[in-house]
Every structure is written in structure tokens, then in C-alpha cells.
Design a protein around this nucleic acid. Structure first.
Lengths: 332, 332
DNA sequence: CTGTTAGCGCTTTCAT
DNA sequence: ATGAAAGCGCTAACAG
């Protein structure tokens, strides 16, 4: 490194002006057959690669880059989103610049700022719950934004979210239908809107079926598998234990499964989120699943439309969930 | 969008020259207290964000961006790598530009080229097996590269890989120790070097223990779970069926588990790669695991050192694997 | 068809 | 301590 050819070098080598090289590179018409060949040859021989940064310097020029800001790639949910985003970005000739927030609001701020400085064409973000409308206004001045999975309160902007409430409602109703009337609820961070929506769906389903939600069956703010397991165990150890458990998310499901497995009791579990190899698990499980890849795809498509100039007013897309049974259930 | 302030605008507003604004932005010394304040105020008021592309135009200036080229983010292995890369990139103030090859060599070429055009500071790539040394030479002229997981044959470059051979050898030996002498082998694409190394380890372990590898027990080129399952089933249906199965990778393990489960026979399975919730599976399983996140971390660290100018000769880092037992094993 | 001429937004001497 | 001016690599009128 240190001797990379520029367009000038190519021009010199091919005995033409830089404009001509530029024309050839960009496949413009009106370039003489012979000249074009001479340039093409020089480009190939010298291994010239045009500097995209210089090109993008010109105002109005797109950088063909989308920013994707997620919590953490170690999370399968984020990874699936990234996969979907990458898929449509690639199909439309864009690359994805990744940024992770590690659940830190300050970092989200910094990452978004860094994205803007690099002049990405648009920004996809799974926002932190505590987000300020102020920040979004600042950022979206520089590039269109689309929110994924969550929408900061009070912010009107494009967003693609899941039908959390509907999914939880349907899953809970399913449990009731199968004869359960005491259904425990294991939830993650109660401050997160998605969790609140799922809890609301659970409650609604109970009421729909004439059951009064029992607060003592609800355990919130379990942040990892271990605490979820503890919470589940304590629920099962109660005097009037639940006969089924609804788990807020992936980690809650895992904790619940372990606790139920150890208890040796036939407690049914229904959980939100995908679980790998669920069909091979030793206990029956019902899952509220959704297509996280599609979440990424739709959001990216929406963003690209905005970038292309779509003037429609902020759009909110809600993706459906579906209910799947794994293992043997007693169809009483 | 359309009215973003430039440094000139800020300069005008603060009644100073652009050079002064530049100095303030970059926190240089020798700027008058009052002047600095005036500029800072203008920057904040106007919401100015410096254009990183313009800054990077100057030769020798780093873009603080690392390219990461993987097969596909839907693959947990790739996602883990990306997570590790992101972690150390962030710690050293870099962002990650993502590119996926979707197992297509042409796409890999294109993506790498696109990365170079954007003048990334360095490139991390999980190369396609059929890679040409030629391409790598071309690319690495523009930016240092580090290979992950696989090393293109005949290319001497930095790489971080797994101890595939050692891991398979140890796992197979473990099976032998537990009394198995007929061990089936389920492999993915035989053209991939990692697979070849694992197969070599399996064979070596057998020989180490005085057993002659039986070719009829080896089934290669199973590209998905379904074909792995079929292959496993056919192995189990043989006249002298194996009492244990060694699975090349994640998908092979899954296929093997399903086949064994259905056969109802007590065939032990040992597989390469992580499997989520393995501890909850209904059958015993032994896994050769490794830290894919660490793979990403190490590779990124190595690359950043190169970028910083580390002149050492190409380095090859091999990460260890470990053997873990899940479920109940008969410790005969 | 092809070359000349201005910049794009910012950094960096070089003066003052 | 601050400004003027040149230039990074490329594109885009505008001439010929």
C-alpha cells in the first residue's frame, strides 16, 4: 500500500484526460472505441479502483450505504434483522454499515452521529427505549430513518414492528382453550414497549375469556435465563401454582423450560420468539414466532423507497406472528 | 435534507475562516478562547456534522472502517464472528462495513472490490473455497486482509482459524474410549478445507487407536439437514451399523439426531459446532465447540495491528476447540 | 468524441 | 492566534 493508482495515473498511462477515464469507468456513451479500449486496458493493467469517497463528495451523490444500528449482533434477533437488511440492500446495490449500541443510550447517540458523518444514505435503527425525540429530529435531518421493532414514544416516523399484542393474545387464548385458567407470565424488562404490549395481549386474552388476571402470577423484569428460571420455579412452588406458563421472550422460554423440566410437572409452556431445534426438545412447547428476517427486509425496502424520494407520510408496518406447537400436547 | 450546513456555513456564522472551524472541530490547540466558543456555539446551533468522506479524501487518512465479508448473516457462525469483529472494532473506534457472499464466488469478488473502492482500512474475509490467489493479491494491494476460518490454498496471509483436525481427533478418540469401534462419519461439502481437516482428524484418531477407517462408514457431501438425516439413516440401516456417529457440522448433527431419534436405537452422536439448547435435547450429545466470537475478535485485532503498521510476517492463529457432553451418557 | 475548467467539503502548509 | 490558498480524487458542465 502506498502506490495505489489514481485516475490521473490511468489517464497518463492511456494518454487521455481524466474526464475520458471517468467516462469509461462510468460506462458513458460517446467514447471512441479505440480510446475506450486503451483506457480499459490501462485500468486493468494498473489494477485501478476508483475512489468512491471522492465520487460521493459531490453534493446530492448517494454513498450507496445504509446504516444499521442494532443492540448487539450476538442476539439472534438482531442477526436475523441484519440478514434481511443485507439481502435487500444488496439487491439494490447498497452496502450495510453496522453499528451496535450494546444497550447503551450514549453509544446509540455516538453511533448515529458517526453514521451521519459518513453520509450514509439512510438509517435503520432498533432504538433504545429511552430515546429522545430531540436526537431523532437532529439525525433525520441528515438522512431518512426507519425504526425497527420499537417506536420511540411521541416520534412520528417510518417504522416496521411486530404484532406483539396480537401474538400474545392469541397464544394466551390458545392456552385457555386447552383448559388452562391459571397461566403464569414471565417477562423481561418491563420498560420496553414490546414487553408491555405482550403483557397487554396476555391480559386481554384472559379477560376475553372471562378470567381475571391474577397479579401474583406475573413476574416481570427478569433479565436473563437464570432469573427467568428462578421466577418460573417460584411460580411453580406457590400454593396455587399455574398449570401453564407464558414466556415473554427467548430467554424467558429457556428459563421456563429448565424450571419445568426440573420440577417434573406437566406444565405447558408457550413462549414468544424462536427457539432453535424446538422440535427435538424433551418437553412440549408452543411458540409465538415471527419472521425477523422479513422485519429487516421490509424496513430496508421502506428506507430505500424514502431515499428514492417517496414523499408519502410516515408509514407504520406491522408484521404478523404465528403460533406453532412442538412436541406432544395432550389434546384434552 | 437538502440544507445541511457545511464548514463554510459554520465559518460564516461564527465570523471566522474555515481553517479555524476545522481547528476547533479537531480540538487543536492555539485557538483563542473566545473564538473557540463562538465556533462551538455555531456548530451546536446549526447542528453541523463534519463530512467524514471529505476528510478521508486526503491521502493517508484512514476511514476508520473495517470490511467484513462473510457468507451469510443467517448463519449463527457468521453472526458470532460479526459480533466479535464489531466488539473490537468499536473498542478501537472503527465501524464495520458488511458484505455477504451468499456462497457465490462472483459476489465475493464484487463485494471485495466494492470495499476497496470505499477505501476501507482493512478487510476481514471468510473466503470461498475456490478462491484465486490472484484476487487476493489484487485486493490486498489496497488494504490489509485477514482470513477467517479458512485459508485459500497457496496464499500466505494473516489468518485466524480453528483447530479442526485436533478437535475431530479428540472427539473421535473420546468415542473410541467409550467403547465404540464402528463410528460413522457425516460430512458436508468435501471440497471445503475445514471439512477435510475434520475428516483427517477422525481418521487419525481411529488409527491412533489401532482401528482401520472403514470407508463404508463415511458419508460426505451432505449439504443440508435433510440429506444428512438420510445419510445417517442409511448408515444405521446397514448390515453392520455404526454404534456412534461423528457429525462434521451443525447441520449434520441435526440430521444425525433426528435419524437416531427415529431409529429408537442408542447410537451416540458427537458433532462439530454449537447447538442451541443442547442440554435440553431428548438424547445425549457430545459437541466439539469453539468460540466463534473470539475468532472474530482475534481477526479484527490482528487486522487493526496491521493497519497500525505492524510489519511482522504473515501470522496464522489457531483457536482451540473443546469437548462437551450433554445429556446422559452411559459411562461404561 | 475529447479536453479544460471548476468545484465538492475538508485539511494543511505557509504567511501574517 | 488566524486566514489565504492549494489540493485530495473525482464528476460535470462547457467548449471545441
Amino acid at each position: 500500500m502506498g502506490d495505489e493508482p489514481t485516475m490521473r495515473d490511468v489517464a497518463r498511462a492511456a494518454q487521455v484526460s481524466v474526464s475520458t477515464v471517468s467516462r469509461v469507468i462510468n460506462g458513458e456513451k460517446y467514447v471512441g472505441r479505440a480510446t475506450r479500449e486503451r483506457v480499459t486496458e490501462a485500468v486493468a493493467r494498473m489494477g485501478f479502483q476508483p475512489n468512491a469517497l471522492a465520487r460521493n463528495l459531490r453534493p446530492g451523490q448517494a454513498s450507496s450505504t445504509l446504516a444499521l444500528v442494532v443492540e448487539d449482533l450476538s442476539n439472534p434477533f438482531s442477526a436475523a434483522i441484519a440478514d434481511g437488511v443485507d439481502e435487500v440492500a444488496r439487491a439494490r446495490d447498497h452496502l450495510v454499515l453496522l453499528g451496535s449500541t450494546k444497550r447503551d443510550f450514549t453509544r446509540e447517540r455516538d453511533v448515529l452521529q458517526e453514521m451521519v458523518r459518513r453520509r450514509v444514505d439512510g438509517i435503520l435503527v432498533v432504538p433504545r427505549p429511552e430515546n429522545h425525540a430531540h436526537l431523532h429530529a437532529e439525525i433525520s435531518r441528515w438522512a431518512p430513518m426507519v425504526f425497527l421493532d420499537r417506536v420511540p414514544r411521541g416520534v412520528k416516523a417510518d417504522a416496521v414492528v411486530l404484532d406483539n399484542r396480537g401474538g400474545a393474545r392469541r397464544a394466551t387464548a390458545d392456552l385457555v382453550t386447552r383448559g388452562h385458567s391459571r397461566i403464569g407470565y414471565l417477562g423481561g424488562a418491563s420498560s420496553v414497549t414490546t414487553g408491555a404490549q405482550r403483557l397487554a395481549g396476555y391480559r386481554q386474552a384472559l379477560r376475553d375469556n372471562g378470567l381475571e388476571p391474577d397479579p401474583s402470577l406475573v413476574r416481570l423484569d427478569n433479565h436473563d435465563v437464570a432469573s427467568a428460571q428462578e421466577a418460573a420455579a417460584s411460580l411453580l412452588a406457590g400454593s396455587e401454582p399455574p398449570t401453564a406458563l407464558f414466556a415473554d421472550n427467548n430467554r424467558m422460554t429457556l428459563g421456563a423450560a429448565t424450571a419445568v423440566h426440573r420440577s417434573g410437572r406437566p406444565v405447558e409452556i408457550t413462549g414468544f420468539d424462536e427457539v432453535e431445534m424446538a422440535e427435538l426438545l424433551s418437553l412440549p412447547l408452543t411458540l409465538v414466532t415471527y419472521d425477523a428476517v422479513e422485519l429487516g427486509r421490509r424496513a430496508a425496502a421502506l428506507l430505500l423507497d424514502r431515499i428514492a424520494g417517496d414523499p408519502a407520510k410516515p408509514r407504520r408496518v406491522t408484521l404478523p406472528t404465528s403460533l406453532t406447537h412442538f412436541g406432544s400436547h395432550d389434546h384434552a
